[in-house]
């Protein structure tokens, strides 16, 4: 279990017990209930990259919606039924084009558009990505197997506790006439962070 450097073992045992103790004390003191915690856990679990993919596929399919999404993401999310809690940090959608490729990072921590696409992947929170992506973004893209044309400008966007970014990947060629549901299958978590591109249409089974 320790091979990923995720600190399983002594640290995990120590901190899991302290977390359980704090939780038990908070419940005893009437600060919150177990039900509050489990309801919140289920709510967090319910958000996933599929939600982001659905929204971004709609933007590919509907140019007017795309304009609204890029201008005011939160209002556009709401159109599709995604109501961000008041306490949620602001989310901006940034478009990747033939000229500019954007990638998101949180060099300071792990800030991520969780309210729309769920918890960040493990690598996003680790030191290697956070350190390297601003120094050598093209090298990092290569680590993800992502090739860009020489002429494409690469921009790295640093997130913060208050501002988070969702990348609208470039719509791949050969996707004309595909349904939104099909298009959403091309939009991966990596492509919404900008370390990957949307999948080519050949890569998904046609139904």
């Amino acid at each position: 279990m320790a091979e990923n450097g995720h600190g399983h073992g002594d640290n995990a045992e120590y901190y899991s017990l302290r977390a359980a103790a704090m939780q038990a004390l908070l419940i005893e003191k009437g600060v919150c209930t177990l039900d509050d915690i489990m309801t919140m856990a289920d709510k967090i679990d319910s958000r996933s990259p599929e939600d982001g993919a659905k929204i971004l596929a709609h933007a590919w399919a509907d140019p007017e919606y795309k304009k609204r999404l890029l201008a005011n993401a939160e209002a556009a999310f709401l159109e599709l039924g995604y109501d961000l809690p008041e306490t949620s940090p602001k989310i901006t959608v940034v478009e990747n084009t033939d000229e500019v490729h954007n990638m998101a990072v949180c060099t300071l921590c792990s800030c991520f558009p969780r309210a729309i696409i769920g918890r960040p992947p493990a690598w996003y929170k680790e030191l290697a990505y956070r350190s390297k992506v601003v120094a050598d973004p093209r090298g990092v893209l290569q680590e993800f197997g992502t090739e860009l044309d020489e002429g494409v400008q690469v921009r790295v966007i640093d997130s913060s506790a208050d501002y988070r970014y969702l990348i609208l990947p470039k719509r791949p060629a050969g996707t004309e006439g595909m349904s939104e549901e099909q298009l959403a299958k091309l939009i991966t978590q990596e492509s919404m962070i900008g370390v990957g591109l949307a999948l080519a249409p050949e890569s998904i089974p046609t139904s």
Partner: peptide, 20 residues
């Protein structure tokens, strides 16, 4: 915590950590 540009030669570990 300020990791941007901090020297780092580690490869990015793409494996997902299954949440406990």
């Amino acid at each position: 915590h300020d990791r941007g540009g901090w020297p780092n030669d580690d490869p990015i570990d793409h494996s997902e950590h299954e949440m406990e």
